[in-house]
Design a protein around this nucleic acid. Sequence first.
DNA 1: GAACCATGATTAC
DNA 2: TAATCCTGGTTCG
Length: 273
Amino acid sequence: MPEGHSIRYFADAHEHCFQGLPVEASSPQGRFTEGAAAINGRTLLGTTTHGKHLFLHFAEVDEIVHIHLGLYGWFKAVSKEYRKSDDVDLSPKPSTRLRLENPYYISDLIGPTKCEYITTEQLQAICSRLGPDPLHEEADPEPFYKKVLSSKKTIGQLLMDQSVIAGIGNVYRAELLFLTQQNPMTPGSQVNEQTLIKIWNAAAVLMQDGSTDGMIRTVPRYNLTEEEKQRGRYTQYSNVYKRHTNPCRVCGTSVSIADLAGRKLYWCTECQK
DNA sequence: GAACCATGATTAC
DNA sequence: TAATCCTGGTTCG
């Protein structure tokens, strides 16, 4: 269930856990055996990300591990030190595509759409197909503005198009459009440029926060209901995503839901005219 | 235990 | 637009 923020979060976690030490790599599931063998015993130099794509770079080899989590891919990481006392079974699940391990940590990759060993040329090819990533501090949003303003597709569709802007998924789409009071059904060419700038800037801030927390947070605390304020701080809240039929947090109108190009779209018809 | 669903994306028709 | 891939949690009977 990952959007761009999760990818950056996992990238950071892998640098924290594995950078600088040789890693033991295996593919318990048997579907990434060759790639795992190629990096086994190598040292993680670092990670890079673009949108929802994660790249692991290892010493002494030119090839790169490319991971895309898809709809339900995920990493499960554990600290062996932390687990030592509680007799936890650390053996991998049969569905583990890639296990990385050193004396201190284990990371298991489960259910990714892609986990492959690629050349730098292939990496370039992947990135060149993607739009700018709001999580890259040096990113130039201009291509994003241009593509939206020259398209007759709806802004709701365009935000999900990775070649237009990279890293946005169904949750951030809904939340960004709500926070900028933008109607999802407006054609790109008719969106106000100031609104586009707001969308980009909000994406940069929210996804940065999300990559730190490991979860999407888009609702200011004062907009939570009293009941929600009582819940733990690690509960996820949204303004409109999956809140259809609930009252809008701002105006009280019932949040709408619709199907847009095969994905569920949530929005407030009053706040997003 | 089956059926369904999900923060994704590609491929084929 | 539909079928397909990947997994696991929840819901249904």
